[in-house]
Amino acid sequence: MSQENILEIRHLSKAFGKHVVLRDIDFTVKPGNVTCIIGASGSGKSTLLRCINLLETPTSGEVLYHGVNIADRKVNAASYRSRVGMVFQNFNLFNNMTVLNNCMVGQIKVLKKDKETARKNAMAYLEKVGMAPYINAKPRQLSGGQKQRVAIARALAMEPEMLLFDEPTSALDPQMVGEVLTVMRTLAQEGLTMIIVTHEMAFARDVSSHVVFMANGVIEEEGEPEQIFGAPENQLTREFLSRFIQG
């Protein structure tokens, strides 16, 4: 059953106090899919991603991972998170560790791999993102693009089934955006399941298999990239995209 959904979100809502940020969100992710979530600032994209990774607790609704509702309190959040990685806008590399240790610590402490296996694995992924020469550096000694590539390697070293990206290039200078997007393109080609919140429309159009457009906490439109970018049906989608095409 390779077409079984990895992730299925049903009627997900999230409120911070009285402020409703997500309303009745529904969507599914199939293995190997690259889902890009686009939408204006404040539309709830980050919150949705954080709910998927349980960094926020959904107010209501279900997040089914292989059919199991992980929003249920009985589910072990830590072991679920070890299978679904996340890459943040601000990298969140561990400041007290070198690049290599950043990529090893999770394998050793969470996956209980031995040091040598963890090191080899970490090196392989650092190689992949082009950061192998920097294994001895501390995060504060790297540029933003380098940090983000290490963060991607750290997530990959856990060999996750799915990877979530929250605006991975928004904190980067324009010349560094390319290096990170290149890595992500490679991952997409290799068939890694990804959910990517991004403002890089050209990237979303090229790479995604599915695009979700959000506005004010609801999914206004979703579909294939050709349809969303080529012939958006929703008025809000059209307005949102026209701003990007002009700018």
Binding site: N53, L55, A77, A78, S79, Y80, R81, S82, R83, G85, M86, F88, N90, F91, N92, L93, F94, N95, N96, V105, G106, K109, V110, L111, A151, R154, A155, M158
Partner: peptide, 27 residues
């Protein structure tokens, strides 16, 4: 310590205790 450090640790599946010992307390 920046809450991002805790989130980074949680995101790779560390428990609260593992996060404290390996990431937060050393810093």
């Amino acid at each position: 310590i920046d809450p991002g450090q805790t989130e980074g640790a949680k995101a790779i599946g560390m428990t609260h205790v593992q996060t404290m010992i390996n990431v937060i307390l050393p810093q």
